[in-house]
């Protein structure tokens, strides 16, 4: 975009100097339109969570006359959201811990050691990680291992899905760490494993963050696994709780439903906005190299 080129192009178009400005206005208006299409429904959901049932019907677009905080109290009690938040938290954090531990150790082995079948194993990951699991044998397995209706079962179900991608992320990161570091630690008397634990892991924050975000967001939003594996009310995570509540009361109490939806999504959205760079990098890391 040199100045000479710019003026040449402008001259070509017979002195249409406002053209770049026009392009800019066009770009921004389209982008704003599609941003509004995304953001407005979410903002509307939050507004609707403060409306009365009457206002939801008579006052679709406006602000609530006075905020109906009662919706949140109702949501909290009727849908037992406190318990649901706790369950989602336990399962998500459990899944993050399990995935980070298992896949960092495995990823290190794939990055730094050469051993037979390593390529074969990685290829098995590549070819099976996207395959939809047949749910009947999956469910029967969990029943036989007595892992239905438990936190551990849900954590294992979610973790098993994200392990391959997490291994690839760790492997790529560890490859970029110079071997000298590991050799130096070993000369200082560290075993291979303690060199990994004490020297390599402390500088692997970016990879840990990427895998943690990917696993946490996936686990927090996971709906199918709890639907399949969780039976008792006490263990339902947020997603399943909302859906069950929606089926039971939804048609009659939409205002309370919007309060539940807001409680479920606002914390995640706030964290996302604060850490947006990390989140976007983490959630696209399977698709963009590096």
């Amino acid at each position: 975009m040199s100045a000479a080129q710019f003026s040449r192009q402008a001259a070509k178009r017979q002195g249409v100097y406002w053209r770049p400005l026009l392009v800019k206005v066009f770009n921004h208006s389209i982008l704003i339109l599609f941003t509004v299409i995304i953001v407005y429904p979410v903002l509307w959901m939050i507004l609707a969570s403060f409306k009365t049932p009457g206002e939801l019907i008579s006052n679709i677009w406006g602000l609530p006359a006075s905020p109906a905080y009662q919706n949140y109290a109702d949501a909290w009690e009727k849908a037992r959201l406190g318990r649901a938040l706790l369950n989602s938290g336990i399962v998500s954090i459990g899944a993050v811990l399990l995935v980070v531990c298992l896949s960092s150790i495995a990823g290190y082995a794939f990055a730094k050691f050469s051993f037979r079948f390593s390529t074969v194993i990685l290829l098995v990951f590549v070819f099976t990680m996207q395959a939809p699991v047949p749910i009947i044998p999956f469910y029967v397995l969990f029943v036989r291992l007595k892992l239905t209706d438990s936190y551990l079962g849900l954590i294992l179900a979610i973790a098993s899905g994200t392990i391959p991608l997490s291994i690839f992320i760790f492997q790529a990161f560890f490859r970029s760490i110079p071997n000298e570091l590991r050799e130096a630690a070993k000369i200082d008397g560290c075993s291979e494993f303690s060199a990994f634990l004490r020297v390599v892991m402390p500088i692997s924050g970016p990879a840990v963050a990427t895998v943690s975000i990917l696993t946490f967001v996936g686990a927090w939003n996971e709906y199918f696994m709890p639907l399949l594996l969780i039976r008792s009310d006490e263990l339902r995570p947020l997603t399943l709780t909302i859906q069950v509540f929606f089926l039971q009361f939804g048609r009659a109490e939409w205002n309370v439903i919007f309060a539940t939806l807001s409680i479920a999504s606002i914390p995640m959205i706030v964290i996302y906005v604060l850490l947006q760079r990390w989140f976007i990098r983490g959630l696209t890391s399977g698709s963009i190299k590096g």
Binding site: I38, V39, V217, I242, Q243, Y272, V273, I280
Partner: peptide, 13 residues
């Protein structure tokens, strides 16, 4: 940031 936001929302919500 705005356009990417629904990615962090659950399909249930």
């Amino acid at each position: 940031t705005s356009l990417f936001m629904p990615v962090v929302m659950s399909f249930v919500v």
